[in-house]
Design a binder for these strands. Structure first.
Length: 267
DNA sequence: ACCCTCCTGTCA
DNA sequence: TGACAGGAGGGT
């Protein structure tokens, strides 16, 4: 579930469910996460759940003003699910379980690419890139980021050190909305195109967040997310289907990862 | 800019 | 059996 809108959805759904709860125990089911068990999280209170980039950040208060941050990156297949007390936890692909008063916060991750860190400082979770949903993300800011940039537009957008939160789905969608070809050289964008890219980035993300993101293989967990933005995808995963604008076939290009676009509408 | 790798699963 | 999957770090 891991692009910005999905992670935002997870954080928003989780916050009211776990904020204020105390960690009573930590269970590790994946040797990769062993170090988390050594961090003595037990006794800490979850103060807040937020999204930073594509990460979910739980702020913990350990007592006497000591704060720590549990930073979870879901990568490709990570899921965070709250199980209220009487409910049993599904065990398959369960990697980490935080026993809280009143229930459990379960981290599932089929492919085990996800990461969990415990930090003493919140800025450890900070990413170098600008969050495209923040007020600081203006057309002007985007233009400055793009200035002097090299290479193609889509790989540029995928990197997390300039803008955070965009991944393979939303890059394709945003570029389609903006009418920009994925392989356009970054340096060749006109002011008007930059403005369009800025506008569509905000619009696509806002809309996706409103629909709780995109869910493909729809797990129907009680508290898991069931996003519906997949209904609104215009090019992603639609190779050969008609472009919503010109009705020509959507093209897919595969280098390392698939890119979907309309060669006629995107220049 | 292009590879591969970390994993496990599903689908053609 | 091989291709591919929402991410990202590493190497060349």
């Amino acid at each position: 579930m891991p692009e910005l809108p999905e992670v935002e959805t997870v954080a928003r759904q989780l916050a009211p469910l776990v904020a204020g709860r105390v960690i009573r125990g930590v269970q590790i089911h994946d040797p990769k996460l062993r170090q988390v068990a050594r961090e003595r999280l037990t006794g800490g209170t979850i103060e807040s759940v937020r999204r930073i980039g594509k990460q979910v950040v739980l702020q913990l208060r350990q007592g006497r003003g000591v704060r720590r941050w549990l930073v979870i990156h879901l990568r490709m297949t990570g899921r965070l699910i709250w199980r209220a007390a009487p409910a049993r936890c599904e065990r398959s692909h369960l990697r980490l379980r935080l026993r809280l008063d009143g229930g459990s916060l379960c981290f599932y991750d089929l492919r085990r690419f996800g990461t969990v860190q415990v930090l003493d400082r919140p800025d450890g979770a900070a990413t170098a890139g600008l969050d495209p949903t923040s007020p600081a993300f203006t057309a002007r800011a985007l233009e400055e980021l793009l200035r002097g940039g090299r290479g193609q537009l889509k790989p540029w957008l995928l990197r997390q050190d300039r803008l955070v939160g965009l991944g393979n789905i939303y890059c394709s969608e945003i570029l389609f909305e903006a009418g920009l070809a994925p392989h356009r050289a970054v340096g060749t964008l006109t002011d008007e195109e930059v403005a369009r890219l800025h506008r569509t980035t905000r619009a696509v993300l806002r809309r996706a967040i409103r629909h709780c993101g995109t869910t493909f293989s729809d797990f129907q967990d009680a508290q898991g997310l069931t996003g519906s933005y997949q209904r609104y995808l215009k090019v992603y995963g639609r190779e050969g289907q008609p472009c919503p604008r010109c009705c020509g076939p959507v093209r897919r290009e595969q280098q390392q990862r698939s890119t979907f676009f309309c060669p006629r509408c995107q220049r």
